[in-house]
Each structure stands twice: as structure tokens, then as C-alpha cells.
Amino acid sequence: MSINKKGQLGETITWVVATIIIIFVLITSIYASSLVAKSKKVLSYDSYEREADGIMTKMILSYFLTNGNGQADILFKLQNDVFYGNAFAELNKIRNNLK
């Protein structure tokens, strides 16, 4: 009788612990899903790699349309600004095409 009772108690404890673990995993997953939604659902130009940049293209075209100081100013800006593409690769490509 005593052994049977002890066995039942052990089994019950096993199920209770299992239930607690399942609930804990579920709560963690629910919390993680809300965190992922918050961080992954913010879209910006930095979220993915881009090769084209309209502003950069405009500047490069302006570079070839002007001369003297204007060209130097544009080149300085192309060197120092951050673009979503490789400004100098694009500049050299157009320069080679014009040769």
C-alpha cells in the first residue's frame, strides 16, 4: 500500500514538473516572439544591402557636368559622405565609358 502510494506520488510529481516546464517554455517563446516582432519589423535602408543610391548617382552625374571648383566640391563630398553604394566604383565606371 505504502509502496503504491509512493509510486503514485512520484509519477504525479513527474507530471507536475513536466507541466511546469511546458508552461515555462511556452511563456518564454511568447515573450521571444514579441521581442522578435519588435526588432525584426523595423525596416530601414540599412536592413539590407543596396547597390543603388539615387542621390549618389545625381552627384556623380553633376560631377561630369561641371568643372573647376564645382568638380572639386563634388569630389570632396563623394569622398566624405556615406552612400548606399560604392561611389568611386560608379564614378570610375562612367569615367571609363566616357574615354
Binding site: I30, S33, S34, V36, A37, K38, K41, V42, L43, S44, Y45, G54, I55, K58, M59, I60, L61, S62, Y63, F64, L65
Partner: peptide
Amino acid sequence: NFYNYPYDVREIEANILLNNVADCVSRGG
């Protein structure tokens, strides 16, 4: 939870608006 959270596209929207204004001000350099 995941699908109820909206996509935050404001930065992209601001960039699109900026590109539209830039296109209006300057075309082809």
C-alpha cells in the same frame, strides 16, 4: 503577437519622400 505587430516603415517612407523631392529638384544631375 508576431503578426499583430505592425511593420515600422517610417524610415523607408522618409527616404522615399526625400528621393521624390530630390528627383523634383534635380534630374540627371
